[in-house]
């Protein structure tokens, strides 16, 4: 469903992506792991055009990611951000129906009713009228997921969704993501949560220095990595505590 072929991206003199090939099938959960600065977030950001890649091709369901294709792609592919990026001047409920009403021009009453359902689904219905600034990080991120779901996306990109959270708030967000995975949502997740990747991901790709160094079944990569640098990385993150 999402296909990257030979994708490159430079920021000035620094080559961040040096030829990335990646496939995400419909209904698949793929976790991108790797050190900071390896380029894994940039891969996500190229898929929905927040960054424009320099060379190579990205297709989503056959639609090429370029100026002409982006509006259709952003309708089908939602994103959840590390720092939540909820609109601080709108209530939780307004954040969730923002895109349906103001981008896709759904009738307000209908979009509102659906937003309330989505908030219930992430267990945030009680906070519908709060402003994001009044919520904990975990609560904000669950609203972020509801806002992504409001697009009725075919796939969701998660950019380190738990990295900005207090440790005791990580579980509530991962639980929502696990439910989505079980319902068959296509998910591409940049994460440092190795246990989550092991438990939920169908596939794992290890990103290093701008290329996919190794990819395959989650268990294979995480338990029996073939590449030495994958093994080194896993040893570092798994034994940090």
């Amino acid at each position: 469903m999402i296909t990257l072929r030979g994708v490159t991206k430079r920021f000035g003199a620094r080559a961040v992506l040096k030829g990335v090939d990646l496939d995400v099938a419909r209904g698949e959960v793929l976790c991108l792991i790797g050190g900071s600065g390896s380029g894994k977030s940039t891969i996500l950001r190229c898929i929905n055009g927040l960054e424009r890649h320099d060379a190579g091709t990205i297709h989503v369901d056959g639609t090429l990611v370029d100026d002409a294709g982006l509006p259709a792609i952003r309708r089908r592919v939602a994103m959840v951000f590390q720092r939540f990026n909820l609109f601080p001047h709108r209530t939780v409920l307004e954040n969730v129906f923002e895109a349906p009403v103001h981008v896709h021009h759904e009738p307000l009453a209908q979009a509102r009713a659906r937003a309330i359902d989505l908030l219930a689904r992430v267990d945030m219905a009680d906070h519908a009228d709060s402003l994001p600034g009044a919520l904990s990080g975990g609560q904000q991120q669950r609203v972020g997921i509801a806002r992504a779901l409001a697009l009725r996306p075919d796939a969701i990109l998660f950019d380190e969704p738990t990295s900005a959270l207090d440790p005791e708030r990580v579980g509530e967000v991962l639980r929502v993501m696990r439910e989505l995975a079980e319902e068959g949502m296509t998910m591409l997740i940049v994460t440092h949560e190795i246990d989550f990747a092991r438990g939920v991901a169908d596939k794992v790709a290890f990103v290093d220095q701008g290329v996919i160094a190794e990819q395959g079944k989650a268990d294979d990569i995480l338990t029996h990595p073939k590449a030495a640098r994958t093994a080194q990385f896993l040893a570092r993150v798994l034994h940090r505590g």
Partner: peptide, 15 residues
Amino acid sequence: GLIEAGEALGMNRFT
């Protein structure tokens, strides 16, 4: 990040 959130939700420049 808020501008990117708007873009990711499909907003055009006017919106």
